[in-house]
């Protein structure tokens, strides 16, 4: 049997099942249903976007749709968000977010791919049990881990301002730990789709596992890794809990800083609204520009049933 890299599974142009299903469904009802869902998904966000441009008093007293009947725009909220964060502005916190996110995405994905490879194509005792355990550990709520991990980091000297890299290690480590179970589970699903013959024949030719992993598997898994990378990026970027517990205030990500910005007890909706959009921009750009890889990556692992 010849081997086709699955990353290139051709997308049938004419005759996909849903397309056929749709043809009969294509009544105005089907389009209407899709349209209704799309509207339902957009309107709330649009409300927030509009609110972020409305003056404080308006935001707090009237609904955002009043802007269409009583137009009043202001950039004041954004100005406050950018200037009102102490002497430094928001920029350092965006940098912190990047410094936290980049390693916290790359490292767990690479580790997970390695582990997924071993679980799929290597033989060692206790393999099934280990895999089940890792899968099951997805369920541990992060809150449970906070105190034990903090104790550990303090003992290892990874916590606080005097720690190496200003305390970033505890954040990188935590995000890596929390990401691994789901990453291994999902990537293992993709990994198993790679035809076994590919690995068998390479083994026959005397290739080591490391060689197979780096030369054969890695390129094939690239799209799937990118797909999971996007999800992991979104989770780390939007995380608040881990940052608050393990991050010192000098390395807070933008999300934590924006949360603090909203006043002592947090009812400055106008500032929160603009803040939410500021922190949304980068993930949005990342997703939109990588959307192509995302779909392709998921396609690579698509299950043949």
């Amino acid at each position: 049997m010849t081997v086709t890299p699955i990353a290139q599974v051709p997308v049938a142009e004419k005759l996909t099942a849903p397309a056929a299903a749709k043809k009969t469904l294509t009544s105005p009802w089907a389009s209407l249903a899709a349209f209704v869902i799309a509207v339902f998904w957009t309107v709330p966000t649009a409300g927030l976007l509009i609110s972020s441009f409305r003056p404080e008093h308006d935001v707090k007293t009237t609904g955002w749709w009043h802007i269409f009947t009583h137009p009043s725009f202001t950039f004041e909220n954004y100005r406050t968000v950018f200037s009102g964060t102490g002497e430094t502005g928001l920029f350092p916190f965006i940098v912190n977010s990047i410094a936290i996110t980049v390693p916290a995405v790359i490292i767990p994905i690479f580790l997970a791919t390695m582990a997924a490879y071993a679980f799929a194509w290597m033989r060692f005792p206790g393999k099934d049990l280990l895999f089940i355990m890792i899968f099951a550990l997805q369920i541990v709520p992060i809150q449970v881990t906070l105190v034990p991990l903090l104790n550990l980091y303090v003992k290892l000297g990874l916590q606080g301002q005097d720690a190496p890299a200003g305390g970033f290690y505890s954040l990188w480590l935590s995000h890596t730990m929390f990401a691994l179970p789901l990453a291994i589970f999902l990537l293992h699903n993709f990994m198993r789709e790679i035809p076994g013959e590919l690995i068998e024949s390479a083994r026959m030719d005397g290739a080591t596992h490391v060689q197979i992993f780096l030369r054969v598997i890695f390129p094939l898994m690239m799209p799937a890794m990118a797909a999971f990378g996007i999800l992991q990026f979104l989770w780390v970027w939007n995380d608040l809990l881990v940052a608050l517990v393990f991050g010192g205030f000098k390395i807070y990500p933008i999300n934590a800083q924006l949360a603090a910005l909203a006043g002592t007890r947090g009812s400055d909706w106008h500032l929160l609204a603009s803040g939410a959009f500021v922190s949304l921009i980068i993930p949005l750009i990342v997703f939109l520009s990588l959307q192509r890889f995302f779909v392709r990556g998921l396609l690579a692992g698509s299950v043949k049933g």
Partner: peptide, 17 residues
């Protein structure tokens, strides 16, 4: 291949659990 991931999961999730 597996121990780095298993170790991290053990420390970060299994032990707290």
């Amino acid at each position: 291949f597996v121990l780095p991931a298993v170790g991290l999961v053990g420390v970060g999730l299994l032990y707290p659990a």
